[in-house]
Design a protein around this nucleic acid. Sequence first.
DNA 1: ACATTGTTGCAACCCAGTTGCATTAATTTT
DNA 2: AAAATTAATGCAACTGGGTTGCAACAATGT
Lengths: 126, 126
Amino acid sequence: MGVVRKTKHLEQVLRVFRQSSDPLSARMLLDALPNEVNKSTVYRMLDKLEDDGVIHSFMTLEHIRFYALCKGCSSGQRVDSHAHFQCTSCKRVSCFSDEIVLPIPEKARITSVQVLFTGQCQSCLS
Amino acid sequence: MGVVRKTKHLEQVLRVFRQSSDPLSARMLLDALPNEVNKSTVYRMLDKLEDDGVIHSFMTLEHIRFYALCKGCSSGQRVDSHAHFQCTSCKRVSCFSDEIVLPIPEKARITSVQVLFTGQCQSCLS
DNA sequence: ACATTGTTGCAACCCAGTTGCATTAATTTT
DNA sequence: AAAATTAATGCAACTGGGTTGCAACAATGT
Ligand SMILES: [Mn+2]
Ligand SMILES: [Mn+2]
Ligand SMILES: [Zn+2]
Ligand SMILES: [Zn+2]
């Protein structure tokens, strides 16, 4: 079951996501929230928002889950995936703007795809 | 630093990987090994094998790391990625045989890509 | 205002993965 | 072959992301 009631915390969570250009982990979100919020509460909000399709999540190399606002995959049919990138030096996670079109395997009923590029970001290269 | 000495455990680990068509988690590997092996040892062997490029790893939705033998990305240049699939019902993880060709973003020096499809496998559908 | 029920905080818990250290075993040197 | 060297192993304690049961609280409908 997704979000039902519009609570203060929920509004703040959504505001933090909108103001961030990058995906966030639960820990980063906790630190970014203006009020002190219990971590259980944060995890439960994230679960519900994902249930509702408002956010997507994906795992990074350090087995930490990151979350980002969904930007329009909701329309249904196609399995869309905007890819993500993690810098192996500074560990920062970011979105790739370009949509990636993937051939969908026939062997199963695919409902989502996660693409994670890794390497070194510009600032870590220079 | 990668593997240096050819120990009994290491041979058994490689044998298990060769006999398995699917990627394995550390837990699955532990259970598949003929001898009782300490989990720290297993994790350390996996680390070293990945350092050496013998195996690749990727995270699944339940934040569990899976490992699979590298099948020929070693030749260098191209960022190759054979995609993986996890069934959301039975949680089984498998490889997709078809190589996936991805446009490599210019914004960073990409060294690897992970692609994880999720959905329902054939047997869970029927 | 009241009843209903979703949400929150708390504390305890789970589990994948890590780490420090003493012991063991593979490889090199003599 | 024996000794020396050092990588690999087992163990136990630990870390940290994430979960869960439950009582207290707060949003929503009437
Ligand atoms: Mn989306
Ligand atoms: Mn490979
Ligand atoms: Zn970086
Ligand atoms: Zn299945």
